[in-house]
Amino acid sequence: MKSIFSTCAQDSKRLLTNALFWVLTATLVVIVLVVDLALPKELASGGVTPLTWNAPADAAFGTPALSEEALREAVRKGDAVGFLFGEDGLTIVHPGFSEKSLNIYVLELMRDGFTPVEVVSLDAQAKEIPLNLRLTPIFIAFEALMVGFILGGALMLAEKQDGTVRALRVSPFPVSSYIIAKTLLFSLIGTLYASLICVFTVGFSINWGLFLPLSFIGTAVFTMIGLAYTSPFRDMSGWFFSMIALLSINMLPVISYTSPAFTPFWMRLIPSYPMLMVYRAAMFGGSVDWVYTVVALGAWGIVSYLLARIFVARKHLKGAGV
Protein backbone atom coordinates (compact mmCIF):
# COMPACT_ATOMS: atom_id res chain seq x y z
CA MET A 1 0.00 0.00 0.00
CA LYS A 2 2.69 2.44 1.09
CA SER A 3 4.65 1.66 -2.07
CA ILE A 4 1.59 2.27 -4.29
CA PHE A 5 0.84 5.68 -2.80
CA SER A 6 4.50 6.70 -2.88
CA THR A 7 4.64 5.73 -6.53
CA CYS A 8 1.52 7.84 -7.23
CA ALA A 9 3.09 10.78 -5.41
CA GLN A 10 6.43 10.61 -7.17
CA ASP A 11 4.83 9.97 -10.57
CA SER A 12 2.73 13.10 -10.14
CA LYS A 13 5.88 15.08 -9.32
CA ARG A 14 7.53 13.65 -12.42
CA LEU A 15 4.49 14.65 -14.49
CA LEU A 16 4.90 18.29 -13.55
CA THR A 17 8.25 18.32 -15.34
CA ASN A 18 6.93 16.40 -18.36
CA ALA A 19 6.23 18.47 -21.45
CA LEU A 20 3.45 16.15 -22.68
CA PHE A 21 1.53 16.74 -19.45
CA TRP A 22 1.41 20.46 -20.12
CA VAL A 23 0.51 19.86 -23.77
CA LEU A 24 -2.49 17.78 -22.69
CA THR A 25 -3.49 20.35 -20.08
CA ALA A 26 -3.31 23.13 -22.65
CA THR A 27 -5.38 20.99 -25.03
CA LEU A 28 -8.06 20.79 -22.35
CA VAL A 29 -8.29 24.59 -22.24
CA VAL A 30 -8.40 24.74 -26.04
CA ILE A 31 -11.24 22.19 -26.12
CA VAL A 32 -13.32 24.19 -23.67
CA LEU A 33 -12.77 27.36 -25.69
CA VAL A 34 -13.58 25.66 -28.99
CA VAL A 35 -16.78 24.10 -27.63
CA ASP A 36 -17.93 27.32 -26.02
CA LEU A 37 -16.92 29.79 -28.69
CA ALA A 38 -16.07 28.25 -32.01
CA LEU A 39 -18.49 25.38 -32.65
CA PRO A 40 -22.00 26.13 -34.03
CA LYS A 41 -24.86 25.56 -31.62
CA GLU A 42 -27.32 24.45 -34.35
CA LEU A 43 -28.28 20.83 -34.36
CA ALA A 44 -26.65 19.23 -37.33
CA SER A 45 -29.18 17.79 -39.74
CA GLY A 46 -27.00 14.71 -40.09
CA GLY A 47 -27.08 14.22 -36.35
CA VAL A 48 -30.04 11.88 -36.41
CA THR A 49 -31.13 9.24 -38.91
CA PRO A 50 -34.54 9.48 -40.51
CA LEU A 51 -36.30 6.12 -40.08
CA THR A 52 -39.60 5.14 -41.70
CA TRP A 53 -42.29 2.55 -40.96
CA ASN A 54 -44.90 1.40 -43.45
CA ALA A 55 -43.74 4.06 -45.89
CA PRO A 56 -45.55 4.11 -49.25
CA ALA A 57 -43.46 3.35 -52.29
CA ASP A 58 -43.30 7.02 -53.35
CA ALA A 59 -41.76 8.20 -50.05
CA ALA A 60 -38.20 8.66 -51.22
CA PHE A 61 -36.65 9.49 -47.86
CA GLY A 62 -35.39 7.75 -44.75
CA THR A 63 -34.39 4.17 -44.05
CA PRO A 64 -37.09 1.58 -43.40
CA ALA A 65 -37.01 0.48 -39.74
CA LEU A 66 -37.13 -3.18 -38.73
CA SER A 67 -40.28 -2.67 -36.68
CA GLU A 68 -42.32 0.13 -35.22
CA GLU A 69 -40.88 -0.66 -31.79
CA ALA A 70 -37.31 -0.51 -33.14
CA LEU A 71 -38.07 2.86 -34.65
CA ARG A 72 -39.46 4.24 -31.37
CA GLU A 73 -36.50 2.82 -29.48
CA ALA A 74 -34.01 4.54 -31.81
CA VAL A 75 -35.88 7.81 -31.42
CA ARG A 76 -36.00 7.47 -27.64
CA LYS A 77 -32.23 7.05 -27.63
CA GLY A 78 -31.94 10.26 -29.60
CA ASP A 79 -30.40 8.47 -32.58
CA ALA A 80 -33.26 8.94 -35.04
CA VAL A 81 -36.30 10.84 -36.11
CA GLY A 82 -39.16 8.57 -37.15
CA PHE A 83 -41.87 8.80 -39.84
CA LEU A 84 -44.77 6.45 -39.11
CA PHE A 85 -47.30 5.93 -41.88
CA GLY A 86 -50.58 4.73 -40.31
CA GLU A 87 -54.22 4.61 -41.36
CA ASP A 88 -54.77 8.18 -40.19
CA GLY A 89 -51.78 9.53 -42.05
CA LEU A 90 -48.18 10.43 -41.22
CA THR A 91 -46.91 10.81 -37.65
CA ILE A 92 -43.51 12.28 -36.85
CA VAL A 93 -41.83 10.96 -33.70
CA HIS A 94 -38.79 12.94 -32.66
CA PRO A 95 -36.29 12.97 -29.76
CA GLY A 96 -37.34 16.38 -28.48
CA PHE A 97 -36.49 18.73 -31.34
CA SER A 98 -37.12 22.41 -31.08
CA GLU A 99 -39.94 23.82 -33.21
CA LYS A 100 -37.37 25.35 -35.51
CA SER A 101 -35.71 22.06 -36.25
CA LEU A 102 -39.06 20.33 -36.65
CA ASN A 103 -40.17 22.90 -39.20
CA ILE A 104 -37.24 21.98 -41.40
CA TYR A 105 -38.50 18.39 -41.54
CA VAL A 106 -42.14 19.38 -42.00
CA LEU A 107 -41.33 21.73 -44.88
CA GLU A 108 -39.21 19.06 -46.52
CA LEU A 109 -42.07 16.54 -46.22
CA MET A 110 -44.68 18.90 -47.59
CA ARG A 111 -42.53 19.54 -50.61
CA ASP A 112 -42.59 15.79 -51.23
CA GLY A 113 -46.40 15.79 -50.87
CA PHE A 114 -46.79 14.45 -47.33
CA THR A 115 -48.50 16.35 -44.55
CA PRO A 116 -48.01 15.09 -41.02
CA VAL A 117 -51.17 14.72 -39.00
CA GLU A 118 -49.40 14.39 -35.69
CA VAL A 119 -46.04 15.24 -34.10
CA VAL A 120 -44.94 13.26 -31.05
CA SER A 121 -41.93 14.00 -28.87
CA LEU A 122 -40.49 10.97 -27.15
CA ASP A 123 -38.18 12.99 -24.92
CA ALA A 124 -39.75 13.95 -21.60
CA GLN A 125 -37.32 16.81 -21.21
CA ALA A 126 -38.09 17.99 -24.72
CA LYS A 127 -34.80 19.73 -24.93
CA GLU A 128 -32.78 20.14 -28.04
CA ILE A 129 -29.08 19.48 -27.58
CA PRO A 130 -26.97 22.08 -29.32
CA LEU A 131 -24.36 20.63 -31.65
CA ASN A 132 -21.38 22.00 -29.77
CA LEU A 133 -22.49 20.28 -26.57
CA ARG A 134 -23.42 17.11 -28.40
CA LEU A 135 -19.77 16.84 -29.41
CA THR A 136 -18.45 17.28 -25.87
CA PRO A 137 -18.50 13.55 -25.01
CA ILE A 138 -16.21 12.99 -28.00
CA PHE A 139 -13.69 15.49 -26.67
CA ILE A 140 -13.87 13.99 -23.23
CA ALA A 141 -13.41 10.44 -24.47
CA PHE A 142 -10.43 11.32 -26.64
CA GLU A 143 -8.66 13.84 -24.46
CA ALA A 144 -9.45 13.39 -20.79
CA LEU A 145 -9.64 9.60 -20.87
CA MET A 146 -6.43 9.38 -22.90
CA VAL A 147 -4.18 11.05 -20.30
CA GLY A 148 -3.30 7.67 -18.85
CA PHE A 149 -2.51 6.14 -22.22
CA ILE A 150 -0.27 8.98 -23.33
CA LEU A 151 1.28 10.16 -20.06
CA GLY A 152 1.54 6.69 -18.53
CA GLY A 153 3.48 5.68 -21.62
CA ALA A 154 5.62 8.80 -21.42
CA LEU A 155 6.53 8.05 -17.80
CA MET A 156 7.46 4.47 -18.70
CA LEU A 157 9.72 5.63 -21.52
CA ALA A 158 11.35 8.12 -19.14
CA GLU A 159 11.97 5.26 -16.70
CA LYS A 160 13.76 3.38 -19.45
CA GLN A 161 15.76 6.43 -20.48
CA ASP A 162 16.73 7.29 -16.90
CA GLY A 163 17.51 3.63 -16.28
CA THR A 164 15.34 3.76 -13.15
CA VAL A 165 13.41 0.77 -14.40
CA ARG A 166 16.49 -1.31 -13.56
CA ALA A 167 16.38 -0.07 -9.98
CA LEU A 168 12.69 -1.02 -9.83
CA ARG A 169 13.49 -4.49 -11.13
CA VAL A 170 15.82 -5.24 -8.24
CA SER A 171 13.39 -3.89 -5.64
CA PRO A 172 10.52 -5.76 -3.98
CA PHE A 173 7.91 -3.88 -6.00
CA PRO A 174 5.43 -6.28 -7.61
CA VAL A 175 4.23 -5.80 -11.17
CA SER A 176 0.64 -5.58 -9.94
CA SER A 177 1.49 -2.65 -7.64
CA TYR A 178 3.28 -0.91 -10.49
CA ILE A 179 0.17 -1.18 -12.68
CA ILE A 180 -2.23 -0.23 -9.89
CA ALA A 181 -0.19 2.83 -8.90
CA LYS A 182 -0.06 4.24 -12.43
CA THR A 183 -3.70 3.38 -13.16
CA LEU A 184 -4.94 4.93 -9.93
CA LEU A 185 -3.07 8.18 -10.51
CA PHE A 186 -4.24 8.59 -14.09
CA SER A 187 -7.82 7.58 -13.35
CA LEU A 188 -7.97 10.42 -10.84
CA ILE A 189 -6.41 12.87 -13.31
CA GLY A 190 -8.64 11.65 -16.15
CA THR A 191 -11.78 12.02 -14.01
CA LEU A 192 -10.71 15.52 -13.01
CA TYR A 193 -10.04 16.51 -16.62
CA ALA A 194 -13.34 15.03 -17.84
CA SER A 195 -15.23 16.87 -15.10
CA LEU A 196 -13.50 20.15 -15.92
CA ILE A 197 -14.39 19.89 -19.61
CA CYS A 198 -17.98 19.03 -18.74
CA VAL A 199 -18.45 21.81 -16.18
CA PHE A 200 -17.07 24.47 -18.49
CA THR A 201 -19.18 23.36 -21.46
CA VAL A 202 -22.37 21.46 -20.60
CA GLY A 203 -22.44 22.68 -17.00
CA PHE A 204 -23.17 21.23 -13.57
CA SER A 205 -26.61 19.75 -14.07
CA ILE A 206 -25.70 16.33 -15.36
CA ASN A 207 -25.88 12.83 -13.93
CA TRP A 208 -22.65 12.79 -11.91
CA GLY A 209 -23.47 9.37 -10.50
CA LEU A 210 -22.95 8.04 -14.02
CA PHE A 211 -20.34 10.52 -15.23
CA LEU A 212 -17.73 10.09 -12.48
CA PRO A 213 -17.54 6.28 -12.35
CA LEU A 214 -17.50 6.14 -16.13
CA SER A 215 -14.63 8.63 -16.34
CA PHE A 216 -12.67 6.72 -13.70
CA ILE A 217 -13.18 3.31 -15.29
CA GLY A 218 -12.68 4.66 -18.81
CA THR A 219 -9.33 6.24 -17.95
CA ALA A 220 -8.29 3.09 -16.10
CA VAL A 221 -8.97 0.92 -19.15
CA PHE A 222 -7.05 3.22 -21.49
CA THR A 223 -4.18 3.59 -19.00
CA MET A 224 -3.72 -0.17 -18.72
CA ILE A 225 -3.90 -0.62 -22.49
CA GLY A 226 -1.29 2.15 -22.75
CA LEU A 227 1.02 0.48 -20.20
CA ALA A 228 0.82 -2.81 -22.11
CA TYR A 229 1.31 -1.08 -25.43
CA THR A 230 4.28 1.05 -24.35
CA SER A 231 6.18 -1.77 -22.60
CA PRO A 232 8.12 -3.04 -25.64
CA PHE A 233 9.20 0.45 -26.77
CA ARG A 234 12.59 1.90 -25.88
CA ASP A 235 12.09 5.51 -26.93
CA MET A 236 9.58 8.08 -28.10
CA SER A 237 10.06 7.92 -31.86
CA GLY A 238 8.47 4.60 -32.83
CA TRP A 239 6.06 4.76 -29.93
CA PHE A 240 4.53 8.09 -30.86
CA PHE A 241 3.65 7.29 -34.45
CA SER A 242 2.27 3.82 -33.92
CA MET A 243 0.30 5.19 -30.98
CA ILE A 244 -1.48 7.56 -33.33
CA ALA A 245 -2.55 4.59 -35.48
CA LEU A 246 -3.94 2.81 -32.43
CA LEU A 247 -5.77 5.90 -31.23
CA SER A 248 -7.31 6.38 -34.67
CA ILE A 249 -8.92 2.94 -34.48
CA ASN A 250 -10.20 3.82 -31.05
CA MET A 251 -11.81 6.95 -32.53
CA LEU A 252 -13.94 5.05 -35.05
CA PRO A 253 -16.99 4.95 -32.73
CA VAL A 254 -17.30 8.70 -33.30
CA ILE A 255 -18.91 7.75 -36.62
CA SER A 256 -21.58 5.73 -34.85
CA TYR A 257 -22.01 8.41 -32.24
CA THR A 258 -22.85 11.03 -34.84
CA SER A 259 -24.65 8.69 -37.29
CA PRO A 260 -26.18 5.99 -35.11
CA ALA A 261 -27.57 4.13 -38.13
CA PHE A 262 -24.01 3.00 -38.83
CA THR A 263 -23.27 0.78 -35.87
CA PRO A 264 -21.90 -2.53 -37.11
CA PHE A 265 -21.27 -5.17 -34.48
CA TRP A 266 -17.49 -4.69 -34.46
CA MET A 267 -17.97 -1.05 -33.54
CA ARG A 268 -19.43 -2.15 -30.23
CA LEU A 269 -16.22 -4.07 -29.50
CA ILE A 270 -14.10 -0.91 -29.48
CA PRO A 271 -13.77 0.34 -25.88
CA SER A 272 -14.63 3.95 -26.63
CA TYR A 273 -18.07 3.01 -28.04
CA PRO A 274 -19.81 2.16 -24.75
CA MET A 275 -18.07 5.14 -23.13
CA LEU A 276 -19.49 7.59 -25.68
CA MET A 277 -22.97 6.13 -25.26
CA VAL A 278 -22.88 6.35 -21.47
CA TYR A 279 -21.45 9.89 -21.57
CA ARG A 280 -24.37 10.93 -23.74
CA ALA A 281 -26.82 9.45 -21.26
CA ALA A 282 -24.99 11.02 -18.31
CA MET A 283 -24.84 14.48 -19.88
CA PHE A 284 -28.04 14.74 -21.91
CA GLY A 285 -30.37 12.10 -20.50
CA GLY A 286 -31.67 9.03 -22.27
CA SER A 287 -31.40 5.36 -21.59
CA VAL A 288 -28.30 3.23 -21.00
CA ASP A 289 -28.06 -0.30 -22.35
CA TRP A 290 -26.88 -1.62 -19.00
CA VAL A 291 -26.24 -5.21 -19.98
CA TYR A 292 -24.07 -4.24 -22.94
CA THR A 293 -22.29 -1.46 -21.04
CA VAL A 294 -21.44 -3.56 -17.99
CA VAL A 295 -20.30 -6.51 -20.10
CA ALA A 296 -18.25 -4.36 -22.49
CA LEU A 297 -16.53 -2.21 -19.87
CA GLY A 298 -16.08 -5.17 -17.51
CA ALA A 299 -14.50 -7.25 -20.25
CA TRP A 300 -12.22 -4.41 -21.31
CA GLY A 301 -11.25 -3.82 -17.68
CA ILE A 302 -10.17 -7.44 -17.29
CA VAL A 303 -8.53 -7.70 -20.71
CA SER A 304 -6.58 -4.45 -20.29
CA TYR A 305 -5.35 -5.50 -16.83
CA LEU A 306 -4.20 -8.89 -18.12
CA LEU A 307 -2.47 -7.29 -21.11
CA ALA A 308 -0.73 -4.83 -18.80
CA ARG A 309 0.30 -7.67 -16.44
CA ILE A 310 1.84 -9.69 -19.25
CA PHE A 311 3.56 -6.92 -21.17
CA VAL A 312 4.77 -4.84 -18.23
CA ALA A 313 6.21 -7.97 -16.61
CA ARG A 314 7.89 -9.36 -19.71
CA LYS A 315 8.90 -6.19 -21.52
CA HIS A 316 9.28 -3.51 -18.86
CA LEU A 317 9.98 -5.04 -15.44
CA LYS A 318 11.00 -8.57 -14.43
CA GLY A 319 12.51 -10.63 -17.18
CA ALA A 320 12.88 -7.72 -19.56
CA GLY A 321 16.64 -8.13 -19.93
CA VAL A 322 19.10 -5.35 -19.25
Binding site: Q10, K13, R14, T17, D162, V165, A167, V170
Partner: peptide, 14 residues
Protein backbone atom coordinates in the same frame (compact mmCIF):
# COMPACT_ATOMS: atom_id res chain seq x y z
CA UNK B 1 19.14 -6.97 -1.93
CA UNK B 2 20.88 -3.67 -2.59
CA UNK B 3 22.28 -2.81 -6.00
CA UNK B 4 24.42 0.10 -7.08
CA UNK B 5 24.66 0.14 -10.87
CA UNK B 6 27.49 1.54 -12.91
CA UNK B 7 25.20 3.54 -15.18
CA UNK B 8 23.10 6.33 -13.93
CA UNK B 9 19.59 5.31 -12.91
CA UNK B 10 17.98 8.00 -10.84
CA UNK B 11 14.80 10.01 -11.33
CA UNK B 12 16.37 13.15 -12.74
CA UNK B 13 13.27 15.28 -12.22
CA UNK B 14 13.22 14.51 -8.48
Amino acid sequence: IGVSFEQNNLYSSL
